[in-house]
Write a protein that binds this DNA or RNA. Structure first.
Lengths: 348, 348
DNA sequence: GTTAGCACTCGGTAGAATTGAGTGCTAACA
DNA sequence: TGTTAGCACTCAATTCTACCGAGTGCTAAC
């Protein structure tokens, strides 16, 4: 688990045992109480047999090296992002509690329905388990082969193109013709589309008919419409659970507002989660993700794979002083179950 | 526009001109400032040529009759739900501003994509226009006829049932067989399903084959799965925009949390909007909707119709001291545009 | 290197005093 | 009879003060 932030490769990143213990005590206490932690509290709770004075002098060092900070002169210490980072990398190790383990098991034993439903409910579950806002991202079908495609006529000018992908996802696109199209023509176009597209992926080049009759025009239109969305992130699905937890986890109305505003922009959330995954991190703390409005947040992510290849992620968003151990354990457990759930028994 | 609350038919509901003017001044001022309003402020802003003492004695009456309340003895007056109700029914009349009118026009001129996308974006628009959280509800396809249905094989045991409805909506349902099914059988089942279901609505009784071969079993299974969802509200779509506005509009972290928690439960939101529509109201203020956790909220709704029959609604949720005139005007304008947008030119 | 001791800092709290917006009442007035 | 000026009263909010105490940094002794 010893990972290293890409954005903070500055100092040697190693602390002697006592400093580490002190840092740990400060982080634990501060996560618990949300208050600055004083030297005597550390001397008492940590099992170091040293006096508060000793702790104090160590704290001075820890502060100089950037692991701790002081809100004001005569207050205790508070962990910095770097402090949390060290804690996460070296000190914490979480397991999911009995009850929660059971809750997860029960959930996945009983859940049914389409992928979208499962993901949405999973998001709610994860949020309930941790009391943080959860994000579940499902990768789109960009690389998934087309299993079937069908053109349905709504009326003479309106057709609906329904496409089924190998991963079980379905898209629809409406097509507006500039001329009236008969049912026979729609059926024929549908047949041709199937012939053309089945087995291909969205960004594949396809030989479309160049004739100028109704059917050919319709086919060209349909293919164009379908392919038009390929380059975008379309098909990405985001499920956010427990946004009300934002109001609990952060204080300051303005912070709450900002975080909620971010969560509203789903594309932003997807790219945030992607970024973190790409960096090979499982947690991004404070400024690490480089997302200005989220400096007071920490984001935990755990990838989900289907049949071996990455196909989504589950995430948690909380304050930097979040309960990393529990939250990371929960995220990992849920992502593992999700991976397993989509492995074989229920594909779509 | 003079509507009457169903839940408050108690008193005569009529005020003489001066009381009405005073009530109006109090409501307007309090909406503006969020502060209790004093008699002198009313005497100054309203164009009544009376002294504050006179206003005071009128206020005593208004308070006794339940239109105003006093937070504490030596404070100004604040409108009660009943006060807001009178204001909404008799006193306010809003028009959408030039700029906003333009923004709505531009939006509907440029918007494209599937119904879902349009509704989602509309929700964002409405929220931006008003600075309140918006809710857009799209009625399900419960009464819509089936245009086409298709069974697609994902693998030997997994099939996907894709159904297209006359309103342009598409559903998918996965079906897990207990035996391996060949492609030929799936195609045959698909053909039979089309024959059975095209033109029917979801809650129609359908004569399913009683044989026991693979195809017949598959057909029965598919019909059962499809019909299973008919009685639920499934197919209802809810799009919530601007949930971050909750943090702006309400004060008190706890209130914010509660409102957000409600918004997370989409079914609740749908039924709330439905209730209000059913009562024939366009605004529900405070306790009027009988929803305990939302006593400090007002909800504005405006129905959307497609081809004459009701098919959804747009709504706004804000504090009881919300800007009713503007918000109601905006909701009405948007619902009108939405109605028009789905009228003919772009059906799905 | 560790620790006890001590002076010092400074946010938080509690209480008292003050302010001022706003009321209700009353007596006079048109 | 309705309106108003005047006035005593109320009470949240603000300001000021004193003070407490948690916590620090430093130093001298162990």
């Amino acid at each position: 688990m010893a990972r290293r932030s890409i954005r903070q490769p500055s100092s040697t990143d190693d602390l002697d045992a006592r400093k580490a213990t002190i840092l740990e005590a400060v982080v634990r206490e501060h996560i618990d109480t949300a208050q600055p932690v004083g030297s005597s509290a550390v001397a008492a709770t940590s099992h170091l047999a040293v006096s508060s004075a000793t702790v104090r002098s160590e704290m001075v060092t820890l502060e100089r090296e950037g692991y701790l900070a002081q809100p004001h002169t005569s207050a205790g210490r508070v962990p910095t992002d770097k402090g949390y980072r060290y804690f996460v990398d070296h000190l914490q190790a979480g397991v999911v509690g009995e009850a929660q383990q059971q809750q997860i098991k029960d959930f996945f034993a009983n859940v049914r329905g389409e992928v979208e439903d499962v993901l949405a409910q999973t998001s709610t579950l994860l949020s309930q388990l941790t009391s943080y806002t959860s994000v579940v991202v499902g990768t789109g079908h960009a690389q998934s082969a087309i299993l079937s495609t069908q053109l349905v006529s709504l009326d003479a000018r309106h057709q609906l193109l329904v496409t089924v992908f190998a991963d079980g996802s379905v898209t629809k696109h409406s097509i507006l013709s500039v001329f009236d199209v008969s049912h026979v023509e729609v059926a024929e176009a549908s047949r041709q589309l199937n012939a053309l597209l089945i087995g291909t992926v969205l960004d594949a080049r396809v030989q479309v008919p160049s004739r100028n009759d109704h059917v050919a025009t319709l086919v060209r239109e349909a293919v164009a419409t379908l392919h038009a969305q390929a380059p975008t992130l379309d098909g990405e699905q985001v499920f956010i659970g427990g946004s009300s937890k934002v109001a609990e986890a952060f204080d300051g109305v303005e912070t709450v507002r900002q975080v909620l505003a971010i969560l509203e922009q789903e594309l932003l959330v997807v790219s945030l989660v992607q970024d973190i995954l790409d960096q090979g991190l499982s947690v991004a703390i404070g400024s690490e993700h480089g997302f200005e409005p989220l400096v007071s947040c920490a984001v935990i992510v755990a990838p989900v794979t289907i049949d071996g290849h990455p196909s989504g992620a589950v995430g948690l968003l909380g304050p930097t002083r979040m309960k990393y151990s529990e939250a990371m354990a929960a995220a990992r457990a849920v992502s593992a179950q999700l991976t397993q759930h989509f492995h074989g028994d229920d594909r779509a």
